[in-house]
Design a protein around this nucleic acid. Structure first.
Lengths: 201, 201
DNA sequence: CAGTGTTGCATAACAGCGATATCTATTAAC
DNA sequence: GTTAATAGATATCGCTGTTATGCAACACTG
């Protein structure tokens, strides 16, 4: 797993081959089959690893008395995790394009479970009255999709040149909080506050 | 190109092989090389085709006196295009995971140009006072990332079960308009209005 | 018309891939 | 100590993209 993760991170997805892994591990291609049941099994395990890393990073943000700032920091953590593991992130969400590999429903459930942290934070935003009354799960879902879309486009190089990524992130986060019901100026200050807590994540 | 598009749409990305294309075309694998310079060239051409289809679909929405409803319909058109060409969509934005294939800066520019329709609509939303004053490009960008994220997760099967896709789209679109500065109830009615114009797209 | 250069495609081959069958050697259990 | 089981090495199969070679049809030129 360590070798596969390193190969993927350093040399991209095409370096993920049984022969290359075997060469790095000084063994034969059979090891991939005995331990993971094939290449797809190894990829599946790496997806799990990717979600584990993501969740570990999300749990780093601590709950403060400004839940909107916490939520913004969750968004930044999500993005930083993706930027730190770009290839792994691509495998996690662009998985269908890898030959013959498809996630099981259990894997997807595991992925969705990652949203629990965000939902908990959304609940705090709702109970403190910062967000418009609604379902915290649905709010968390909107947060996820928006940040996910931004990160996907950023990794794909589709960000519009005149604006750098940080500007887009800032605007996206503020817009998200406003869309959930927060006051615009309050959202702006909370998002700005989250910028000073980058050392947490 | 037609054969490749059909193979991709009907049998997924692993059916995109020089030999299979050659067999369907009753020719040899060399045709891919003489016409596209290799497999990556063909994929690049398919990405261009994908963006062309997307743009064609986006230009179908007509400008009315309710620009927010137009914007919502643009979002629905973006989603419907992705759902109609899921494999093509995956190649367009998950391209890095295909072996050794990377988009050129020109291709990316072509992709970003697709945003022009959305930016024009955002400008109308701004000038009519529905949206908070700001840069239409940045507003259009936020629209893009949010809808793109939603569609990506939907295609990946990551949507949260209790809510169906339509509910998420509805909530996401309303939230987007609110985040851009529109009034909540006005946004809700405009988004609902866009639901009656699905025959346009 | 004859010759010539160019282009398009078919054939064959090469290197690499995932996957499998077979066999060996090591380990675990009784 | 004997036996069963399992990890791993080797070789192989069918597949992939890619390239080199050669052949056939075409356009051009004297």
């Amino acid at each position: 797993m360590d070798i596969a993760a390193r190969l993927l991170a350093e040399h991209g997805p095409q370096a993920l081959s049984t022969r290359r892994i075997a060469a790095e591990a000084d063994s034969s291609t059979m090891t991939v089959y005995t331990h993971f049941g094939g290449m797809s099994g190894l990829v599946r395990e790496m997806v799990r690893e990717g979600f584990a890393r993501l969740q570990e990073r999300l749990t780093r943000v601590q709950a403060t008395d400004d839940p909107v700032a916490d939520m913004a920091l969750l968004g930044r953590a999500y993005r930083l995790n993706a930027l730190a593991n770009p290839h792994l992130y691509a495998v996690m969400f662009g998985g269908s394009s890898l030959a013959g590999f498809s996630l099981s429903e259990e894997d997807r459930q595991h992925g969705r479970y990652t949203l629990a942290n965000v939902a908990e934070c959304a609940d705090r935003c709702l109970t403190t009255g910062r967000f418009r009354p609604g379902d915290p799960i649905l709010v968390a879902h909107q947060m996820w999709t928006a940040v996910h879309g931004l990160v996907t486009l950023e990794l794909g190089g589709y960000l519009i040149p005149p604006y750098d990524a940080d500007t887009c992130v800032e605007a996206q986060l503020i817009g998200l909080m406003v869309s959930a019901g927060d006051d615009y100026t309050a959202a702006a200050t909370s998002v700005a506050k989250s910028l000073n807590r980058l050392d947490e994540i």
